[in-house]
């Protein structure tokens, strides 16, 4: 009964990982068909190379933007739309709606939105006078704003997910607690921090884990929005895009590609370790 799962997992996860670890210490010619072993210290060379460091930095910046912002927006909106208001259902539907967009759909929407000459944002005068960079050279074209813009599109696409989770979890917070606290004179802010946040914590940790993992695996947004650019500096080339992106400097060297992929795994493993600890502790308590 285990055989089907074990076969698939072995063939498509265990074996390729092992093989990638082996390939990662090889260097190949321009066509990747003649490779030679280079020793496992090649991993160190890849890790410390300018390109990998730059991709790592981009990935980390992306994470540092998308995770807190995604969390903040998700929780903020969920709390905001949690009150008993007429028509709140409409707002909830609106905030949940981005769940229906895949990475490709969301990115293409943003691509047109942000096009500096004819895009939608470039047609709104007051926004442009506030942020001239939208038109010149464009949010996705300016090395300083490109990565935050990619992050924004990513946060947007993930908003529905976070919102739905937090909203569902908010509904598990007993009203009586709030009521009692309110009677005792606790303000809304106090109640939020003392009641809501602790009870939401498991969900929040979850959201952080998911958003972090997603940020580290960012590929589609970059592929569609910036192609890893803008030049110079390729500030949006994430690790995944560095390994698999179109016309990456290592696109034709299977050795370096495998090496980069394995390093991504190691980094995620490191993060997973932290995550599992958090989770394990969480479930023990829960």
């Amino acid at each position: 009964m285990l055989a089907p799962s074990a076969f698939i997992l072995g063939l498509f996860i265990v074996y390729p990982l092992g093989r990638a670890v082996w390939l990662g210490q090889q260097r190949c010619n321009a066509f990747g068909d003649q490779c030679r072993s280079n020793g496992f210290d090649q991993y160190l060379d890849i890790f410390t190379s300018n390109e990998f460091q730059s991709a790592l930095r981009a990935t980390i910046i992306l994470t540092v933007i998308t995770v807190p912002l995604g969390l903040f927006l998700g929780v903020g909106l969920a709390v905001l739309a949690d009150k008993h208001l007429r028509g709140v259902g409409f707002f909830r539907t609106a905030f949940s709606s981005t769940i229906a967009t895949s990475v490709a759909v969301a990115s293409l929407m943003w691509l047109f939105l942000l096009q500096p000459s004819v895009g939608a944002l470039a047609n709104i005068d007051w926004i442009n006078s506030l942020f001239p960079v939208i038109k010149d050279p464009g949010l996705l074209q300016d090395p300083d704003t490109a990565l935050p813009s990619v992050a924004m599109s990513s946060v947007w696409a993930g908003l529905g997910f976070t919102f739905i989770l937090v909203t569902a979890s908010l509904q598990g917070v007993p009203r009586e607690l709030h009521e009692a606290a309110a009677v005792d004179g606790a303000t809304g802010t106090m109640r939020f921090w003392k009641i809501t946040v602790p009870l939401l914590a498991p969900t929040l940790i979850f959201v952080v884990i998911v958003l972090t993992t997603r940020a580290f695996q960012t590929f589609g947004e970059v592929d569609l929005l910036t192609n890893g650019g803008p030049r110079p500096g390729n500030s949006t080339t994430t690790i995944t895009y560095f390994v698999y992106g179109e016309a990456s400097v290592i696109a034709s060297d299977p050795g370096l590609q495998a090496g980069g992929a394995v390093l991504l795994f190691v980094i995620l493993l490191f993060l997973s370790g932290l995550q599992l600890r958090g989770l394990g502790r969480r479930t023990d308590l829960g």
């Binding site: 074990a6 390729p16 695996q217 390994v243 992929a261 991504l264 795994f265 997973s272």
Partner: peptide, 15 residues
């Protein structure tokens, strides 16, 4: 089995 959860797709698609 548990361990395979830790391997991201990105590390294996290559092979």
């Amino acid at each position: 089995f548990l361990a395979t959860l830790l391997v991201p797709l990105e590390a294996t698609v290559f092979v």
